Amino acid sequence: MHTIARTPTTDMEVTSIRLERELKEKLKEMSGNQGYQALIRDILWNYVQQKSGEWKPRFSRADIRASIAATAQQEERCVLTGQLIQSQQPMLLGLTKNGDMVPLSIESLAE
């Protein structure tokens, strides 16, 4: 996951959130050098951008190592184009350089 440039932490409001211990530990493991609070902010910003229509691509075609055909089981958004993929529509799952599987529209990898 790429870090989204945002406000310096000194200019942020302090918010308390309760997380299960296991969830917090998993976030710490996944965050690496980034820190789990920055990871949580990235996750929340990605969610807000996706749901609000302010989507911005986080990946390029060069980030995709392989793809496989799939069928969307719920509404998804292509990580390359931002195109909405409706439930039950054909799509691709792209394997990224980091080993993540991401939703891709069928047209997103066409030459």
Rank of each mutant, 00 (worst) to 15 (best):
T81I: 05
S16Q: 14
N33K: 15
I40Q: 01
G82L: 01
M91F: 02
L80A: 08
A62N: 14
L104N: 05
V79G: 03
V14N: 10
T9S: 13
D100V: 03
L92M: 10
P8Y: 02
G35W: 05
Y36T: 01
I106Q: 07
L27V: 06
D11R: 13
C78P: 11
R77M: 09
A66Q: 04
G53H: 08
S87L: 07
Q37M: 08
R61C: 05
T9D: 14
A62K: 15
P90N: 12
Q50G: 07
Q83I: 06
M12H: 04
L19W: 01
I43V: 10
L27I: 06
S16P: 07
Q88V: 05
I43A: 14
T7P: 01
R61Q: 09
V102Y: 00
N33R: 13
K26G: 03
T9A: 13
T71I: 13
R58C: 06
Q34R: 15
S52W: 00
L84Y: 04
K24R: 15
G32I: 02
W45R: 07
E25G: 09
P90Q: 09
G32A: 04
L92A: 07
Q49D: 15
E20K: 15
A5P: 08
T96I: 08
R77A: 09
M1N: 11
N46G: 15
T10D: 12
I17T: 06
E54R: 14
Q83T: 12
R65K: 13
Q37P: 00
A38Y: 00
G94S: 05
Q86T: 11
V48R: 10
M1D: 09
L44V: 14
A5L: 02
K26Q: 11
A72H: 05
D42G: 03
K51V: 07
A110N: 10
L104K: 07
K28D: 11
K24Y: 08
T96D: 03
L19G: 00
K24C: 07
A69L: 11
C78R: 02
A110S: 13
S87E: 14
Y47S: 11
L27Q: 03
R61M: 06
S67N: 12
M101Y: 11
G82T: 02
G94R: 00
F59D: 08
P57Y: 01
V14S: 13
S108L: 03
I43R: 04
R18I: 08
K28E: 14
M101V: 04
Q86L: 12
E54A: 12
S31P: 01
S105W: 02
G32W: 00
L93F: 06
I17F: 02
T96R: 01
T7I: 10
L84N: 09
Q49Y: 11
H2M: 09
E111R: 09
